[in-house]
């Protein structure tokens, strides 16, 4: 589904990613751990193709196509979706409009989604205007559900969400990644997590640790996370040696 080969990325003239290699197969969910500032968000933003993330070297292949320099909307249409950590407010654009955009015209079904997650009272609010942290997460995930991507990129989906809403967020992610489908699952995901909470809701197939722009460890996500909890990221650095 996704192959990243020797990816080097600059942000504002600073080298942030230094030779990333990763492969995510169809139906797989991967987790990305790492300290603040290690380059995790940069990787997600580069995969989506945002301006300001300059690929200096390397290649990104998605569904067999080289997407390294493809415009954002073409990647979206090809099946990549992303949730934003701090999305901008769109004045005058309602969540209802946004869901219609994501679903490429299937506005009613998209609005129905909002109802099913108890978020229908937000449909006529301007996107992200005055939304709390948890509301932003829900709104982002609803948009992704409407968009129905094959590869979902999630940046700390659990941050700022209260315990009660964690269940809902977990449900939404499970649906996005077809976690209830045990056979023939086609949806893949790459999730950045600091707290690891999301692992309680969404089983991940593989974990990666990023340190200073490089992936230094790959393996069972639960074991990696336990290791980080016990020994800190320093152990990953040491282990790398």
């Amino acid at each position: 589904m996704l192959i990243i080969e020797d990816l080097w990325v600059d942000v504002q003239g600073q080298e942030v990613l230094k030779g990333i290699n990763m492969e995510i197969g169809q139906g797989e969910t991967h987790c990305l751990f790492g300290k603040n500032g290690s380059g995790k968000t940069t990787l997600l933003m580069t995969l989506m193709g945002f301006s300001g993330y300059k690929v200096k070297h390397g290649k990104i292949t998605f569904k067999g196509q080289d997407i390294t320099f493809m415009p954002i909307h073409e990647r979206a249409r090809l099946g990549i979706g992303i949730s934003f950590q701090r999305p901008p407010t769109l004045r005058g654009v309602k969540l209802r409009d946004m869901l219609a955009i994501c679903s490429r015209g299937n506005a009613d079904a998209a609005a129905q989604l909002a109802v099913s997650y108890g978020f229908d009272h937000f449909l006529d609010r301007e996107v992200n205007l005055g939304f709390s942290g948890g509301e932003i997460k829900k709104s982002e995930l609803l948009q992704l559900l409407a968009q129905n991507p094959d590869l979902t990129l999630l940046d700390e989906p659990e941050s700022g969400v209260d315990i009660e809403n964690l269940n809902v967020i977990g449900d939404m992610i499970r649906k996005l990644l077809e976690k209830d489908k045990h056979k023939g699952r086609t949806k893949s995901g790459l999730i950045i997590t600091h707290t690891g909470f999301i692992l309680n809701y969404v089983a991940a197939d593989k974990g990666h640790v990023m340190l200073n722009g490089k992936l230094c460890c790959q393996g069972n996500p639960v074991e990696i996370f336990e290791g980080i909890q016990k020994y800190g990221y320093e152990e990953c650095a040491r282990c790398q040696l």
Binding site: I82, P87, P88, M98, Q147
Partner: peptide, 17 residues
């Protein structure tokens, strides 16, 4: 770019805004 990540091209995104 927020709207482009949802599948709109640049022109459509601008007009939505």
């Amino acid at each position: 770019e927020y709207l482009m990540a949802r599948g709109l091209d640049e022109e459509e995104a601008t007009s939505t805004i």
